[in-house]
Amino acid sequence: MRFKIYRYNPETDKKPYMQDFVLDNISDDMMLRDALLLIKAEDETFTFRHSCGEGVCGSDAVNINGTNGLACKSRLSELKEPIEVRPVPSMPVIRDLVVDMEQFYHHYRAIKPYLTVKDPVPEVEFLQTPQQREKLDGLYECILCGCCTTACPSFWWNPDKFRGPAALLQSYRFLADSRDQATSERLQELDGPYRMFRCHSIMNCVNVCPKGLNPTEAIHSIKKLMVKDLV
C-alpha cells in the first residue's frame, strides 16, 4: 500500500515536502494509525500524536486524502491510494503531522466550558429528567480533536476571532444543560460579528466529525436561544 506523508522538521528542512512510503504487510482490518506506527518503526524521526487508538482521546486528528479525520478510526481498505496524510489545515505545523493547537484550546477556554450554578447546591444530586439529559447527547461526547474547527473555512479566515465549531458546540452543551444558570452571560459572550456569527452553515464540521456530532445544528440552536432572549 502506498502512502504520501507530509514531512517537515524545522531544524533540518527549509520547507515541507511529501515523502513516499510503501507498506507490504497491510491487513484488511488495519487502521491508518497502524500504518503510521509501521512507518514510525521504519523511520523513528517521523512524528505524529496518538494515544488511545480507539477514538476517545482525540490525539491523532490528521488530514487524510484531503479530509480531516482520526487516524485510529480510518480504515485503510476504505481509503484511496496513494493515501495522502497531512497535518490538519490552517494550524501552525510544529513538526511532520504535529500542529500547534493553542488557538483551538484558547477558543475552548474562552467559552467558559464549565457548569455555572448560582443557587446553593443540594446535598444530593440535581434532579434532571431523562428528557432533559437527552438534550446533552450529541454535545458532551466531543473529544476536542479539532477535526471540525480546522476544516471550517470561517475559522481559516478568522482564526483569532471566530470561536470555531468545537468551542461553539461546547458552549451549547452548557446552554442545553438544565443545571446551568449562566444562559444570558453565555449568549452575550457569543454576540458580536465574529465569535459565532462567522458561521455560514458550510457544514464541513458535520462532515468530518469522527464522533458523528453536529456543531452546525448546535450553532443554530444557540441562535434560536438568542432570538428568544431578544424577544
Partner: peptide, 9 residues
C-alpha cells in the same frame, strides 16, 4: 454531578 458530569438519569 454538581460540577457538571452528565450522568445518565
Amino acid at each position: 454531578e454538581h460540577q457538571g458530569v452528565p450522568f445518565s438519569r
